[in-house]
Structures are given as structure tokens and as C-alpha cells.
Design a protein around this nucleic acid. Sequence first.
DNA 1: AGAACTTATGTACACTATGTATATATACGA
DNA 2: TCGTATATATACATAGTGTACATAAGTTCT
Lengths: 202, 202
Amino acid sequence: MTQQSPAPERRGRGRRPAAEVRREILRAAGELLLTEGMAAFTIERVAALAGASRVTLYKWWPSKGALALDGYFAAVGPTLAFPDTGDIAADLTAQLRAFVHLMRDTQAGRVMPELVGHAQTDPELSALLRERYSAPRRALAVEALERAKRRGQLREDVDPEVVVDQLWGACYHRLLIPDQPLTDEFAEALVRNLLAGIGGAR
Amino acid sequence: MTQQSPAPERRGRGRRPAAEVRREILRAAGELLLTEGMAAFTIERVAALAGASRVTLYKWWPSKGALALDGYFAAVGPTLAFPDTGDIAADLTAQLRAFVHLMRDTQAGRVMPELVGHAQTDPELSALLRERYSAPRRALAVEALERAKRRGQLREDVDPEVVVDQLWGACYHRLLIPDQPLTDEFAEALVRNLLAGIGGAR
DNA sequence: AGAACTTATGTACACTATGTATATATACGA
DNA sequence: TCGTATATATACATAGTGTACATAAGTTCT
């Protein structure tokens, strides 16, 4: 059992500072999400952990998914970076290895599939996840691929959006439907296959 | 609102034929899943729709996910096929186009992401989905790729498992995290990119 | 045919969670 | 300082989960 945070001592009946309450709620949401995951993530438990009233949560967050995503970002932070060394193969491999590490070896990574999973039945979360998580990350990768194309490292007729799905999408596949393991070798093979092609001597 | 099945008329207190009850439950589970999706799929509602007692469902199915998957297969059937014409590029494209069509244009396809989503917080469903859905389909694709390799249509050093993730995994990515649309052109580009490679003249 | 066994059913209970309504006390801003 | 915004306690109705118990009826074996 993971030790949960000490519940903050109760005050009386009246209002508490709004900023403080909001901070406590986000902290509690992030903590609960990372330690127990989406299955145990309920408005009820977040409120209790934050020492706040459920009514306050219902007032500010339209859905459980929205609250979970805010908690996720509060706990994890943005962490967006895509270094460009001029060698697209090396850059993609490095980026994918970092992604594999994040998803396989960190609490944040273990939670992300659950958020994506919950989004399948929560349109609110689906839209937020797209806007605040996947779209910005996808854009970074697409930009890197466009730059590589301008350097002549990619064929002119290739759609970078499709490439993103064949690299990161492949990783999400192994993450969400775990038939096969998510390894560094996998990340390297993804880039190798796609850049050089897998077709035979024909 | 989708018209739900007429609730079968009640019998008295005693036992009903086990086979009949099981059939009714699976029918109800499939119907509820396909018409209202995983969010509305509860033991309570399946029991009511089947005219059965909740207790019976709890007895035979270990989790909501397991029941949902049985309902899915009862409604949809197996539908496994991977024709081999001898041309791996054509076969992969045809297979992926069929998959895109299934996921985009049918009730079954609209439900599968929800099952995968629910599996993220239901280990029971995760295991069943792997055993009964993804593994058999993955195996078919891997076999087709192995045959192509023997015909010299694929490079010797390529891991077919990785290729599967770069084709079907890419589709699941667009399905589960819908930043970009799932189209026929996408399916075709996947095969083209991977077989020919996307690297430039270097 | 009868007995023994299996199992679906009705009913009930305790528990958790959702979402809303009401009144009250306090923080915040003009 | 006064008015408004809002966090709080409390209550309520609804829905779903999972279990327990006794009973009725299908099923199977002798």
C-alpha cells in the first residue's frame, strides 16, 4: 500500500482562500493519479485527500477526466523538448528512446495509457488531451521532420504526419496493447525500418 | 435514443435453463455495448436487458470487461482472414484498408477503442483482449510477413513484429488519439513509406 | 420415476460514488 | 467597509457494486 498524504487539518464552516484550495486540489489529484492510477481516481477521494469539499471540485472541473489531466500536469510539468542536431536519424532515435524510457520507467508513463484509455469514454478528456498533450508533441516532431526534409534527409513526397504515427504510434501500440515489449531496440528498429525501408532486393 | 430490446417476460422465482440464460445475457451484452458503448455498459443494465438476475452475471463473469468482450464476440463474430496473393505490398494495403473501413464505418469498430481503453484499468480485460483479439490478428500478419521474407520481398534482417506496430499500430494511434483522420490514403501511405523507405537521396 | 445436484432467482444489505440543493461563514475586491 | 464570490457543512436522490441467504426449478444420475 502506498502511504497517502496526511490529510490537512480541517477548518470551520466558511470559505478558505481560493488559491490555496486550488493548489491543494491539484496536488491531491496529481498524487492520487500517480500513486493509485485512474481506477482509484474519484472526485470523492481527491476531495478527501485535498481536505476540500466535493462541491468545490464539481464547481471548477467539468469532469473527472479534466481534473485528472490538470493533476497530471501539476505533478509532472510540461517537459517538452526536441533537440535538433542536424541528423534526423539520430534525433528521432534519441527522442524515441527517451519516450520509451519515460513510459516504461516512470510513474508519469504508467499513467498516460490510463488517461488515453479513459479518454475513449470521456469526450471532455479526449479534447483536452489532444489540445494540451498530443497536438503540441506531434507538432514538434512534424517540425523536425520538415526541417530534415529541407535538408534533403527525407523524400519530398513524404507526409510527416504519417511518419509520426509510424514512430510514436507504434510505441503507443505496444504500450496500450502490450503484446510485445517496449524496448530501446524497438525504438532503434522503428527509425531504421522507416528511413531505409524494409523492401527486399525485389 | 436507440430503441432497446423488449425485455423478455419474467418467469417466477425458480431456475431457468442455463443455456438459455447465457444466450440471453450475451445477446444483451453485445446489444448494449454496440448501441450505447462502454460508458453505459454496466452489469446492472445488462442484467435488466437480458431479463436475468445480477447475481447470475457475477457468478459467471469475473469482471465487467470480460463480459463486454464476450458480448462483443457474440455480436460481431470472429472475422479473421488474411488473403495471400504473393504480393506483400498489395496484401498489406488491402488488409489495412479493410481495417480502416471496419474501425471507421461500423459499430464494431467504434467499440473496439473503448474496449482497449477500458483494458487500461482492467487487467482481466487486458489479458483477454491480448489472448483472444490482438495476438491472433498479430500472428496472422507476422506469418504473412515471414512468407514475404522467404519470397525475397522483405529484407532478411527485418523483425516482422516491429513492422506490425508500424502499420496497425499507426492505425490504432489515429483511432485512440485522434489528432489526424483515419483514411484510405493513410493506409496506403503506411505501406509505401515502410517498404520503400522515407530517407532522401542523402 | 425418484433422488440428488446444480443453478437461476428474489430479496436484502452495506458500501461507494455521482450530482444537486440549501444555508452559512469567510475571503476578496472595489 | 460593504458587497460579492465562493468554500464549507449538510442533506438528499440516484445508480452501481459485490455479497449473503433462502427458495424454486431445471438437470442428471441411479
